[in-house]
Each structure stands twice: as structure tokens, then as C-alpha cells.
Design a protein around this nucleic acid. Structure first.
Lengths: 219, 219
DNA sequence: GTGTATATCTCGGGG
DNA sequence: CCCCGAGGTATACAC
């Protein structure tokens, strides 16, 4: 990784055009070739960047970074304040816990926590426009499509609506009702779901993990 | 800005829990207090981060970064390879051109470029589930809802469908037809729009800018 | 502050 | 390769 602190101007010409007036900034060049220009503030997002793969050419007073799509970043360097290079090696990567996939697993193992009498038919049930998170049957044998989100917003309701639209074309399933499940559901998403006769359930991740470990203890 | 290159492990506990095994990484601390941990590859997104506002405490061998929501980042530093601090000042910020907002402005000023005889009623016309980009009336006085995108994809058609659904409940507007406008529309989005009796128009941003400057020249 | 839409989104997975 | 979905999305903007 190379870390250059310099007074510079930057121009990006690609999916949009953008310009940075002269100021002191950090120019970060990573081992994979990607370039990012950071100001001394404003969260983690750089002001300008160019992802790998690309071609970086260092001219006398400016750099050009070009990618295969024809996007170009031009960095005009007016004054170098610091220039540091360091070998870092390959990173072992981030280990995550608590994302949607895990929530889906827990719900698949405990469909009763979505609705009484629910039994799982299958996870990632395929439709023509993508897989439904969970397909279940209720106590009366009716099909239930479940969309799982960590945070329930309007687009999740849209997604489930699309799936229901397709599932209800299948005579072996019809009629299919929908349930929207999340750790937190925004009021507008509840309104839209109710408006479309879609049920919604708020679940607690830690409580589900508790159920899971209790059940494990029984065996 | 402080740039620390160190062998470290990192633990995040907040919206999820995540762990980074020991490796050499860049730890960036910006003037506004935000912290980002970068590997030597993988685009501009850091492996872990904590946005401002937060509280950074440097202990002997580890740092803790805590934000008001109770999320915490723990950086255990095993070996410091480099430690650089540099004053950069406030950045003048990025100047952009060609984003959706500009396209919407240009179309609002030239509704005729969407359809003959269209007149603008208002931009960001409010509905219960969010604002419609443009509400217009056509030559016959019929209401027209316009959704503007830079790149037209399926979710834009969904969005417009939602708005039309709500707008058509308003007796002073009904019937409202929809037009989907973008610089580029994906085939699937065209199919879905047509299927729902929604019109679609591909516009050229530079041409619109031309119309705009021509009109300005007339005055 | 809440809620909604945008983003040069980034990133990963599947066909 | 593109398409689609998730994200600790972040960020801007209207109400």
C-alpha cells in the first residue's frame, strides 16, 4: 500500500463527471491497484476513487487512472507532503455474525416463531423471478411465503408481493398468503403490507438464538 | 489525519458482531474522529470502521472506539510499523454533474421532452408513500406521473406503480397515467412498464442541456 | 427527527 | 459476463 499526502486537484470522468478543487488530501493506492482519495473527514467513503482493475500511469505532475470501461480519474499533484509505502500481505478477511442469512436459518429451524402451526416446506424456494426465503404450510395446509429481512422496509414488501404474484400462478400452491418477518419493521412498510393483505411479524434475534440453544439442550 | 500501519486484531460489536484475525493493516483516524481499518486490497470499503461521532480511547495495547448507540470497535495493536500524522484542513468538497437530480431539473424545465403538450404541475409531488418525481398534465388535462431515473431498471417501474396506485385513489387526479423516463432503460424494465400500461421515454442528458442553453439564449 | 430515494453505491453469489 | 439481493449500507433531502 502506498500512502501519498499531497495538495492536488482531481477530475473523474465516467458514470458522471466530478471535480475536486485544490486541497491537501490522502491518496491511497492498494496492492490490487485500486485508488482512493480521502479528505480528513466524512466517514469512510473517499471523495473520489477508481476500483481495480485499472491502469495507473504516473506522469510528471499528474496521474491518470483508467479502467477497461473507459472511466478515467486524473489526479494533478501540486505538492507532495508525505509519501509512504508499506508491504501488508493478504488479509485473512472478516468473520461476521448476525446477518440476514443467519436470521433465515434460525427461522427455518423454528417456523412456529413466525406463526402457530407453521411447518417449513423449503428454504430459498425458487420462482421465475428469484427465490422466496421460506415456503411453509400452515396448520390448515395452506401455503405461506415468508420474506425475511433484518430491517423491514417498503422494498421488502414489494419483493414479497412479486413472489406472491408468481407463486399464486401455481395451481398446486394457490392460494398462497405472505408473511413479512424482520427484527424491526418501519411503519410505512406495515401500512403497505396490511394494504396488500400481507401479514407481518417482528422477531427478536437473540430470543431466537435462545430457542435454538434450548432445543439443542433437549437432545 | 493519523495513519497507523500496524499488526492488529479488530472486534466490532454493534449491529452485528465481527472479528478480524491478526494481520498488518492501515488504521485511518480522520479529524472528525471517524476510524477506518483498511487491508491492502478490496476497493475503497474498509474492513471495519466507526463513523463520527464517537469516543476513541487509546490504552496501552488496544484502542476502544464507542459511539452513542453503544456500538463498539476494539483494535488490539500487536506491533506498530508506521505512525504518521498530518494536518489537512477542511476539504472544499466534490462538485458533481450528471446525477438524477440534474436530470429531474432539466425535465421539469422541459416537460415537452417527455411528451408533447405536457405541462408541469409540481416536482416531488407528495403521496402517502413518498414523493413522485414530476406530476404533469397532458394536453387534454389528464394527470401524468413521471418517474425519473439515470438508469431505468425494474425497481423504478415498481416505484412508479406504487405511486400510481396511490395517486389513482385521489378523485381530483384520477385517472393518472405513468411515464418512466431515463437516460437508458433495461429491456426487462421496458417489458414490465409496457405490461402495466406505463409509458417509457429514453432521453439524452446532453441534448436536454442543449435545449436548456438554447432556451436561455432566447432571453 | 423520521421516512424515502439515491449511489461512480460496494460486495458477493448464481446462472 | 450480467443480474439480483444485501449492506454495520452512507448520504441527501423533504416533511
Amino acid at each position: 500500500m502506498r500512502l501519498l499526502i499531497a495538495r492536488c486537484t482531481v477530475d473523474y470522468d465516467g458514470r458522471l463527471t466530478a471535480h475536486l478543487p485544490s486541497a491537501v488530501r490522502l491518496i491511497m493506492v492498494k496492492a490490487d491497484g485500486c485508488v482512493a482519495i480521502h479528505a480528513d473527514g466524512g466517514a469512510y467513503k473517499p471523495l473520489n476513487w477508481m476500483n481495480a482493475p485499472n491502469r495507473l500511469i504516473e506522469h510528471d505532475d499528474h496521474w491518470t487512472v483508467t479502467n477497461p470501461k473507459g472511466e478515467q480519474l486524473t489526479i494533478t499533484i501540486e505538492e507532495v507532503l508525505s509519501d509512504l509505502s508499506e508491504e501488508m500481505g493478504v488479509d485473512p478477511g472478516l468473520q461476521k455474525d448476525g446477518v440476514e442469512a443467519h436470521l433465515q436459518e434460525l427461522l427455518a429451524a423454528n417456523p412456529e416463531s413466525i406463526g402457530e402451526g407453521l411447518r417449513l416446506v423449503r428454504r430459498e424456494y425458487p420462482t421465475d423471478i428469484g427465490p422466496v426465503d421460506l415456503l411453509c404450510r400452515d396448520a390448515d395446509g395452506g401455503a405461506v411465503a415468508v420474506e425475511v429481512k433484518r430491517r423491514g422496509e417498503i422494498d421488502g414488501v414489494e419483493q414479497l408481493t412479486r413472489y406472491l404474484d408468481f407463486l399464486n400462478r401455481d395451481p398446486t400452491l394457490r392460494p398462497v398468503r405472505g408473511v413479512f418477518v424482520a427484527q424491526e419493521i418501519k411503519p410505512q412498510a406495515k401500512v403497505l403490507a396490511t394494504d396488500r393483505d400481507i401479514g407481518w411479524v417482528v422477531v427478536d434475534y437473540n430470543e431466537l438464538r435462545g430457542i435454538e440453544s434450548n432445543e439443542l439442550r433437549l437432545f
